[in-house]
């Protein structure tokens, strides 16, 4: 089992390599109609920990994942 440090290093790769495998895996990940997974995140403006599910409690939510680069 990966140590926490290894898990961080594996996820946050240091060099972009490209490839298609993640795109193919996406197609079977969360089919239309499946329950959206909840997770804890930090709200940047408040610094508070929040649950993603709170954003679909009172309406639909459009969630974009991304980074600066």
């Amino acid at each position: 089992m990966a140590t926490p440090e290894t898990a961080v290093a594996l996820y946050n790769y240091e060099a972009f390599m490209g490839g298609e495998s993640d795109f193919m895996a996406f197609r079977s990940k969360l089919p239309i109609g499946s329950p959206a997974p909840d997770f804890t995140a930090v709200a940047l403006d408040s610094g508070e920990k929040v649950q993603l599910r709170d954003y679909w409690k009172d309406g639909d939510v459009v969630i974009e994942f991304g980074s600066l680069t």
């Binding site: 993640d22 089919p31 499946s34 329950p35 959206a36 909840d38 939510v61 459009v62 969630i63 994942f65």
Partner: peptide, 17 residues
Amino acid sequence: YGTLPNMTYVIDRGGKV
């Protein structure tokens, strides 16, 4: 949600994709 760099999901009020 799939580790891709720039995905978008629309989730409904009940929490379904």
